[in-house]
Nucleic acid binder design. Structure first.
Lengths: 335, 335
DNA sequence: TTGTACGCGTTATCAT
DNA sequence: ATGATAACGCGTACAA
């Protein structure tokens, strides 16, 4: 392995010329270009990115912060980010917030010290204010929020249209013949769960289903209690369709309903949200809304790389449209 | 934000002294130490890790390569790595091989250019030779293999005792009253799946269950065919216990068996491998072998950090013991 | 078109 | 115990 010095020595050219060739400067003749590239090949030249970073101020590293890497949704997003960014010659460095604002700040500090060129972040549940934004602006480090976004102005963000997703899910249940619907909601501290609830409400109203707050509940994650609640809703209130805020909860609900002796989708129709791969392994397979995690990662990656070249602080809001995926848990068998 | 120059200017001390204080050199008086640290605080000093890396040759970055980050096992390992390494002031940079040896090599190249201090890798299924080992040794970059390991000598590796895990699983099925057992195997190109098969075989032999290759099969992932095969095995051969190579496949098998009308665990007992979180969401919940993914990540992280300080190329093999997790799919209801 | 020389921010060596 | 200065490997303004 060798550096530009070695190439200079071998070719008899100056360091500057070598550097120019390797950075595709137009100010070099074709001939010397060839000579240098050949020598580079022969010597197994490997640029020292650290030195380049120090000199140029560009590290070719993007920092990524997620609440939990160990979460299929986020790891899929990271997958998307890595794929896009890897192609462009960048690397990603990863930190987890574990839903703690303190760790989030700490991660950003580390990233700044490492001279990352940009930051991609999905904020923690705790985070309501964002003290790091000023600092990053000073340092000219662009930041793009994805999925979970702060409810503030003048930022770049990539989000899913959770409202539409929930609307689509609800509409689908109704179109499949659902009469009495409920929504099992997620943590209302996160705006995306709020949006899913709103989407449910909106679809209900649009189809004149007389929406009330009684039709929305959160799980206790205590199987006895949850079973009891669902039993009552289905028996007394004739609930025949349930839109669950996420696939994991959906499978949990699915099992409860099956254990109660109801048939899915005949007695109760179910749809989740998230399109986890496990959704096709359960029986019946669950309908869901695809969050397009990889796409989100790719768009976020694209956005941050764009921001590196334009130094105007533009406001960007990329909204991805979710996709309805119909499987057994909500499909009315046609005959 | 400021650097050591700013502190030097403010305190009137030399750059060298500032650097010494910040690196906890013993060669400074307590008094100046205080002065410097106070100034650092006041000026919001942030070390430029790029510059430090260039000068010292230590980047405080560890490169991690996994086949797919979007895989709960690997993302859990990364979680473990990140937790351990983050505490020690290191960062992790991540690349995926997508099971391609070419991408694996490419990732290593990138890591070398970035001057990572060490590499953690779980090799791709394709990889049978490891041309990068020489280069890394030249560059004095330590490498630690985890989970999937090359079958060669003189390396550092952290693996699960897959043999024992499979043995435990099989033994458990027998102890629960299993008479006729089969094993649904994984891709035999990976040594860990081979080990799981061997563990099954060993337990079978130990309990005089007359092991033959007929008791091992791989799924076709075609639901019609797989259903047919399982149906026959249960009906004709009286199979009453199945050890499946992984939890995802286990859930797949579970659904097939339920759809055939058999009761689990009464008619057929099941156990998987991997302890995916989804295992408790299906019904019945599946017994499994915990792979201790986070522990593996932490041990791998610990191992690589140790290697940074000792420059002797020591051979290390850390073997983690799996844990049996008994849930409904294999538990004989006591009465 | 090519070369010279300085600087990026820090650490390490040598002197004081 | 502290300071002056070179060096890490590369990029670029300026000179030629």
């Amino acid at each position: 392995m060798s550096g530009i010095k070695d190439i200079a020595k071998k070719t008899g050219l100056s360091l500057a010329t070598i550097s120019r060739v390797l950075n595709n400067s137009p100010l070099v003749s074709e001939k010397t270009k060839r000579i240098v590239l050949n020598a580079a090949q022969a010597l197994d030249y490997q640029p020292n990115l650290t030195a380049a970073a120090l000199r140029s101020g560009k590290s070719k590293i993007i920092g990524v912060i997620v609440p939990e890497i160990n979460n299929p949704f986020f790891s899929s997003i990271i997958n998307g980010i890595e794929q896009y960014i890897g192609k462009k010659g960048y690397s990603i460095i990863i930190a987890q917030s574990h839903e703690s604002q303190k760790k989030e700040l700490h991660a950003i500090q580390s990233f700044v010290k490492l001279n990352v060129d940009g930051i991609l972040i999905s904020i923690s549940k705790e985070s309501t204010n964002f003290p790091f934004l000023d600092k990053l602006e000073q340092e000219k480090i662009p930041i793009v929020f994805f999925d979970r976004n702060p409810q503030i102005d003048n930022i770049k963000e990539v989000v899913l249209d959770d409202f539409s997703g929930a609307y689509m899910a609800t509409e689908h249940l109704i179109q499949q013949g659902g009469n009495t619907l409920i929504h099992i909601a997620g943590n209302q501290n996160l705006s995306l769960y709020k949006d899913r609830k709103k989407g449910f409400q909106s679809a209900m109203e649009h189809y004149q289903r007389n929406f009330t707050e009684n039709q929305v509940l959160e799980l206790r994650k205590n199987i006895t209690q949850d079973t009891q609640v669902l039993q009552e809703l289905i028996k007394k209130n004739n609930v025949d369709s349930i839109f669950v805020n996420g696939d994991e909860d959906c499978i949990y609900v699915l099992n409860i309903i099956k254990s109660l002796g109801y048939k899915i989708p005949t007695d109760v129709k179910l749809i989740g949200f998230g399109n986890l791969s496990i959704g096709v392994l359960v029986q019946p397979s669950i309908s869901t809304i695809d969050q397009r995690a990889e796409d989100m990662g790719m768009v976020a990656a694209k956005t941050i790389l764009q921001s590196l070249n334009e130094n105007q602080p533009i406001t960007i809001k990329e909204v991805l449209s979710p996709k309805l995926i119909v499987r057994e848990s909500s499909r009315v068998i046609s005959n």
